[in-house]
Design a protein around this nucleic acid. Structure first.
Length: 277
DNA sequence: AGCCAGGCAGAGA
DNA sequence: TCTCTGCATGGC
């Protein structure tokens, strides 16, 4: 069983994993996390600035891959400076300093956030687990597009996605048949990438920004869901009504390339610390 | 027991 | 472009 230690400064493993950017993981009683990274199952434990990585299943994962997966080589000072200059966001920074955006599998992000529409985190996790158990080789193994399609649309209908099943089915087929177009989302200008992403079934403005932020690591994307909309109105719009489009424009202008990162701190704070006062 | 959930698609104005 | 509605399901 391989074991490695990785120096990880300005990193908060718990906040990173539990901030609902990924849904397939298991929290162990001792506080460590079990999750699938690039096809292998890892057991992760953080001890101050040291990350302990154990390979539980599959080939050993290199430290470089771990650093890339958790975005550990991006200096966080610019983000911390931004958050320090925003009084409404100081609590979130204090609570979750070191929360980072994971470089997850693009298809996983696409599937997860198609499932997430008009849904709740508990249930999204339940659906994710069910799909891993049915399609995968183990309980953290989410199916790739080919595997999903191999079982036919009826199998997907039994996973509890409701009306989203047909969206995920259509999008899985589109991605499998057009992998080059899918990969273009890494490099296309943001608005063009948004339009391309929204061409997939079940992908609107919000899910498109989730796909770009979490799946293609484009931190300038800023998904506005009901939690973010509420928090932003309260923190920056004096509780006045503001459309999602207006909130997005505000965030992009104010935080630019870090908007998506700021969003993750606001989102996690809104869901865990609460929206009091 | 009804409201809500990391919204989207389609229709109509 | 904008607003409005129906939508599957289950947690609370």
């Amino acid at each position: 069983m391989g074991m490695a230690f990785i120096e990880a400064r300005d990193f908060n493993l718990e906040a990173t994993i539990e901030s609902a950017q990924i849904f397939g993981y298991r929290r162990e009683p001792d506080g460590s996390f079990l999750l699938s990274v690039r096809g292998s199952v890892l057991r992760l434990h953080q001890n101050s600035e040291r990350l302990c990585v154990q390979t539980v299943q599959g080939p050993a994962v290199s430290p470089e891959t771990i650093r890339n997966y958790f975005d550990l080589d991006t200096p966080m000072e610019p983000l911390f400076r931004i958050l320090e200059e925003e009084p409404p966001l100081l609590d979130a920074l204090t609570a979750f300093r070191g929360l980072r955006i994971i470089r997850q599998n693009p298809w996983h992000a696409t599937a997860a956030f198609i499932i997430s529409a008009n849904n709740n985190v508990k249930r999204i996790r339940g659906i994710w687990d069910r799909m891993c158990r049915f399609y995968g080789r183990h309980e953290l193994d989410f199916p790739d597009t080919a595997r999903l399609i191999s079982e036919g649309p009826e199998a997907l209908d039994r996973m509890g996605l409701g009306y989203r099943a047909k969206y995920l089915w259509a999008t899985a087929n589109a991605i499998l048949c057009g992998p080059v177009e899918f990969r273009e989302l890494y490099t296309l200008p943001l608005d063009e990438a948004r339009r391309k992403a929204m061409a997939y079934a079940g992908v609107g403005p919000k899910v498109a920004d989730c796909i770009l932020l979490y799946g293609f690591h484009r931190p300038e994307a800023f998904p506005v869901d009901v939690w973010i909309a509420r928090a932003m109105r309260r923190l920056f719009f004096r509780n006045r009504p503001a459309s999602a489009a207006r909130i997005l424009a505000f965030a992009s202008k104010r935080w630019g390339p870090w908007a998506g990162y700021v969003q993750q701190y606001i989102f996690h704070a809104a869901r865990t610390i609460g929206s009091g006062t």
